[in-house]
């Protein structure tokens, strides 16, 4: 079985955008927006990884760079063992068939002048995967049935404006699925939808994962929603991974001070639950001219003496847990001590 081999490996990936204005660049000093600033992770086949972070954390740039939709500044990405950044056009085309993207807003993705059949079948035509009209129709109807748009014939003739938001997102999913992808990357796939419809789409995606042996990467800012779709979690802040590990482990026991604060601020639909918010001063800055040391330090409530010196590496601290924080060990000892003394 190939269950444990990574389908995609990301190594030291960087995407810096140059700042072209200002007197300093005139005198030759180039400044950068370091949107993605050295990221490593891999995704095993059959897993479902959630990349979470606030706006400006670089999660969307990360995915766009991984897919070579924008050129990387440094690093490498391997898809099924093949390096993506040196692929020749033919291989790149195959790669882009094997990896499909689903976007937040299906209204913007689906051309309103085309029927559902044309929209869903477009990829097959572009990649020349069908020989005649009959086969195309058969594949389209199959894909529509896969996403539970039934009766498929009826839906295939409709235009986007004749569909609800949830139905449109199903069309977008069918459009990806028809190309038989290995990896599906979804950027906030349900955040535009009403709550009562979200669950249906998430359940559908979970079912499709089993039926089609898919691997998922989800990008989201909503950790509560993430819990229902992913088994792995990466928390990003200003272009770096702060924490990585199994979803439930991180939600129940976050280790990085940023993750702890972030989780404490997520509203929950229960008025009787008591909340303890961890304050983070200020707002997330733009990743330009970051201070030395840890990039979260200016807003961190748990700073240590080392935090100003060098940038903490993402280090493995347990069988499945990674964290980029100098202070975690000291905090852990303190916590144990406290627990110890309270037991006595």
């Amino acid at each position: 079985m190939t269950v444990s081999t990574p389908i995609i490996e990301v190594q030291n990936l960087k995407k810096w955008f140059p700042i072209r204005t200002g007197i300093r660049s005139f005198f030759g000093e180039q400044r950068w927006v370091k949107a993605v600033d050295g990221i490593d992770f891999d995704v095993k086949s059959g897993d479902s990884l959630v990349i979470a972070g606030e706006s400006g954390s670089g999660k969307t740039t990360l995915v766009r760079t991984m897919l070579r939709l924008i050129e990387p500044t440094a690093g490498s990405v391997n898809f099924e063992g093949e390096p993506v950044f040196t692929m020749l056009p033919d291989d790149l085309r195959l790669f882009r068939r094997r990896v499909q993207l689903i976007f937040q807003n299906p209204f913007e993705v689906l051309d309103p002048r085309h029927t559902v059949k044309d929209l869903v079948g477009e990829g097959l035509v572009v990649h020349e995967l069908v020989s005649d009209e009959e086969e195309l129709m058969k594949r389209v109807l199959n894909a529509l049935e896969d996403v539970r748009l039934i009766p498929a014939e009826d839906f295939s003739r409709r235009f986007p404006h004749e569909l609800s938001g949830g139905q449109l997102q199903r069309v977008a999913i069918a459009r990806s699925l028809i190309l038989d992808p290995k990896l599906v990357i979804a950027d906030e796939p349900v955040s535009m939808l009403d709550a009562s419809i979200r669950t249906e789409i998430m359940n559908l995606m979970t079912d499709l994962q089993k039926e089609h042996n898919l691997t998922y990467i989800f990008i989201t800012h909503d950790l509560a929603q993430a819990r229902y779709i992913g088994n792995w979690l990466i928390i990003m802040y200003l272009g770096k991974v702060m924490e990585m590990g199994p979803m439930e482990d991180i939600l129940q026991d976050p280790i990085h001070p940023y993750t702890q604060a972030l989780i404490s601020h997520i509203p929950i639909p229960d008025p009787t639950e008591e909340r303890h918010r961890i304050d983070i001063p200020g707002e997330t800055p733009t990743p330009i001219d970051l201070p030395p040391g840890c990039r979260f330090r200016p807003r961190c409530q748990a700073i240590d003496e080392y935090c100003t010196d060098d940038e903490p590496e993402l280090q493995q601290i347990g069988p499945n847990r990674w964290v980029a924080c100098h202070g975690w060990e000291a905090r852990k000892k303190k916590k144990q001590k406290l627990r110890h003394s309270s037991e006595r």
Partner: peptide, 23 residues
């Protein structure tokens, strides 16, 4: 009841989320 049940929570045990068929 259904709408509240459709909202996920980061706290507590993971419960089944509700949804409302139709539009």
């Amino acid at each position: 009841y259904k709408l509240i049940g459709a909202f996920p929570s980061v706290k507590g045990p993971k419960r089944r989320l509700e949804f409302i068929p139709g539009t």
